[in-house]
């Protein structure tokens, strides 16, 4: 089964005429997900590979029943674009862009929640339910259907991790990229609730990094008596303190931000924490072995 996207998803691509937009038109269709309409602000074009282009998200949703959106616009335009697709009625929105001002992320998140919309991002490759549907630009070959629900703060790490899991026969129900920014449309706690409620997700794999407080949310979840077995990898052991490691939130400012402290917190809550990428599949297998016990 799937969370957030499925075969009935009808996708609006905002910024359909750019490199990412054009790629996703082909890539989503190849995965069986329908890109039904697009927006191309500032460009006078009628369609991209047969997908019609509209002047407003409202018109695109009205004409084509779009219920999900993939928003490829640069940070200065992002808040307005996301507010537009929220107003147009899309219930699941992925905003992959990075470099978004935190204040805009706060406003996007608040608007999405007020409308009962799930916003995934910023700074994410999106969401994929292997074999079902995808709303994002992750490499499809990394994923196979299965029973693991995956949550990741990092896009690239989620590709590598899922490629490994799939190679070991450990498929996934849904993989959610929550993104590397401090304020997220969908944070770790909320992504966990989605996977917790999904009947086909047997166990959870969390991919974290230094900085921020998402790992605390994972530990709180794992300590619940009804929690699904959880495995995790936290990267950034070799990162020096006080330096931002690419992601806006990936910074060891205090002791609690460090990789070692996060691993300790997760282990204390009963999470199977992998020592490194090479041990991730084994940790996931340990979590799966605890299912129904």
């Amino acid at each position: 089964m799937s969370v957030l996207v499925d075969r009935a998803s009808r996708v609006l691509i905002y910024g359909i005429a750019g490199n990412f937009g054009r790629f996703s038109v082909r890539d989503l269709a190849a995965y069986g997900t329908k890109p039904v309409a697009g927006l191309a602000p500032g460009r006078a074009i009628r369609d991209v590979d047969g997908v019609p282009v509209y002047a407003s998200a409202a018109a695109a949703c009205r004409e084509h029943g779009a219920n999900a959106a993939l928003v490829y616009v640069p940070a200065p335009m992002a808040l307005d674009a996301v507010l537009e697709v929220i107003d147009a009625g899309c219930k699941v929105i992925v905003y992959p862009g990075d470099g978004l001002p935190v204040q805009d992320a706060i406003d996007m998140r608040a608007a999405a929640r007020e409308h009962g919309t799930v916003l995934v991002g910023p700074n994410t490759p999106g969401v994929i339910s292997p074999g079902e549907a995808k709303l994002g630009f992750m490499p499809s070959f990394c994923y196979t259907p299965g029973t693991l629900g995956v949550i990741s703060r990092s896009g690239s790490l989620s590709y590598e991790a899922c490629w490994r899991l799939s190679g070991e026969g450990l498929g996934q129900t849904t993989v959610i990229g929550i993104g590397g920014d401090p304020v997220k449309g969908l944070n770790a706690a909320e992504a966990l609730e989605l996977l917790h409620a999904d009947a086909t997700t047997a166990a959870i794999v969390y991919l974290g990094e230094i900085g921020g407080s998402d790992e605390d949310a994972v530990a709180r979840y794992a300590a619940r008596p009804d929690a699904k077995p959880t495995a995790a990898l936290v990267v950034g052991a070799a990162a020096p303190p006080g330096k931002k490691m690419g992601h806006a939130a990936a910074l060891v400012g205090s002791q609690a931000d460090s990789q070692a402290a996060k691993v300790q917190t997760l282990r204390a809550a009963g999470v199977h924490v992998a020592a490194g990428l090479p041990q991730l599949a084994a940790a996931a297998r340990s979590a799966l072995a605890r299912v129904n016990k």
């Binding site: 990092s154 790490l157 989620s158 590598e160 991919l207 230094i210 990267v235 490194g276 990428l277």
Partner: peptide
């Protein structure tokens, strides 16, 4: 490429006894 993978690889380099 990608912050998370960069950190993961740094950790693997360190785990192999080298320094990034």
């Amino acid at each position: 490429g990608g912050a998370g993978m960069t950190m993961a690889v740094m950790d693997m380099i360190a785990a192999a006894g080298m320094r990034p």
